[in-house]
Design a protein around this nucleic acid. Sequence first.
DNA 1: TTAATTTGTTTAAGTGCCTTAATTAATAAT
DNA 2: ATTATTAATTAAGGCACTTAAACAAATTAA
Lengths: 142, 142
Amino acid sequence: MTPAPIEDVADKLHTAAIHLLRRVRDVDAATGLNAARLSALSYLVFAGPATVGELARAEQVTPANISQLINGMQNDSLVERVEDPNDRRVTLVCPTKKGERIMREARTARVGLLTSMLSKLQGSELETLSQAAQLIEHTLRP
Amino acid sequence: MTPAPIEDVADKLHTAAIHLLRRVRDVDAATGLNAARLSALSYLVFAGPATVGELARAEQVTPANISQLINGMQNDSLVERVEDPNDRRVTLVCPTKKGERIMREARTARVGLLTSMLSKLQGSELETLSQAAQLIEHTLRP
DNA sequence: TTAATTTGTTTAAGTGCCTTAATTAATAAT
DNA sequence: ATTATTAATTAAGGCACTTAAACAAATTAA
């Protein structure tokens, strides 16, 4: 078999990722959170507490926006602000237990849906997907 | 090698997809469009013209929201409303040439970034990614 | 050690996304 | 014909998001 041009692989992979995430986010409605809050909370729960600035870069919005978004989420007990003793300019944003629970439940639901969709695949095909996921993570490392 | 539990594959795949899209969307800023418009326009360009209701389901927002979003995008000549002769209740939303151009340029930039990241991989690894993308698309089919 | 600069967050004011509820219009059903 | 259903829009209001400005803490320089 002649090797696939690298641009074609990139294109297919990009499209597949979009379609995959479009599908699994169907279950997000159950969380009661909107897209902005879900994405921010997801980052905080799975990448760990972050400063306002770091969150802003991750979400690709302004620090001002994050500051206000956190106000609302703090008001709903999803996150809390914690002072950083090392650098008192920054404020660390941490998920609360409630925020963590909601996010983990949402992730479980997403993965559950995806699991049911993958159930028709053979072992060798699952192995291909597993290796692909690993390759992607490795490739994205800076 | 003992086969990976299917839930683990689903979880790894889900996470990889998130990380991949988080990375490539870095180039979206160049479009001048915000997330809501980019996502809607992406659907219209790559899945074809859609009704307000279909777009609302795809974007997981209300028809009222789409109606207003389309107002703004129409105002910026990104999309246009077209009457459906078969059912005059519905309005088809179509990307304009400008909208199509912007979207395709954005996609090209994303895929270009991803291509550069995949350039360090071997042919066999690219083949694994290619097959994985194909498996995902096939698995997601309803 | 002050002073100036840089870095991180917040506040204020304004635009646009997004919601629910109500309205209008077209199709389908009886 | 009337009624019910489906599709889109409008109106009013809340929240996401922006830029510009203000503020506070840390770093650098004199």
